Amino acid sequence: MSSAVEMKYFQAANAALSDAMRADNDVIVFGEDVAEAGGSFKVTRGLLETFGAKRVRDTPISEATITAMAVGAAMSGLKPVVEIMFMDFVTLSMDALVNQAAKARFMFGGRSHVPMVLRTPHGGGLNAGPQHSQCLEAWLAHVPGLKVVCPSTPADVYGLMRAAINDPDPVIFVEHKALYGVKGPVDTSLSPVAIGKARIAREGSDVTIVTYGATVSMSLFAAEMLAKDGRSVEVIDLRSIQPWDRETVYASIARTHRVVVVHEAVQAFGVGAEIAARIGEDVFDELDAPVVRVGAPFMPVPFAKSLEAVYQVNATRIADAIRTVL
Rank of each mutant, 00 (worst) to 15 (best):
E175D: 06
A178W: 12
L179T: 03
G181C: 12
G181W: 09
K183Y: 11
G184P: 00
P185M: 08
P185Y: 03
V186Y: 04
D187Q: 08
D187M: 00
T188Q: 11
S189K: 10
L190Y: 11
S191T: 12
A194M: 13
R199T: 14
I200T: 07
A201E: 05
A201L: 08
E203L: 13
D206Y: 03
V207F: 13
V207A: 12
T208M: 10
T208H: 04
T208N: 03
T208I: 07
I209E: 01
S217K: 08
M218T: 09
L220V: 04
F221M: 12
A222V: 02
A223K: 00
E224F: 11
E224N: 13
L226G: 03
L226Y: 05
A227C: 09
A227M: 08
K228H: 15
D229Q: 10
G230P: 00
G230N: 07
V233F: 09
E234I: 05
E234C: 06
D237G: 03
L238F: 08
R239P: 06
R239M: 09
S240N: 06
I241C: 01
I241S: 01
D245Q: 01
R246E: 14
T248K: 11
I253S: 06
A254H: 14
R255Y: 05
R255K: 12
R255Q: 10
T256I: 09
V259P: 03
V260M: 06
V262E: 01
E264W: 02
E264A: 04
F269R: 14
F269T: 10
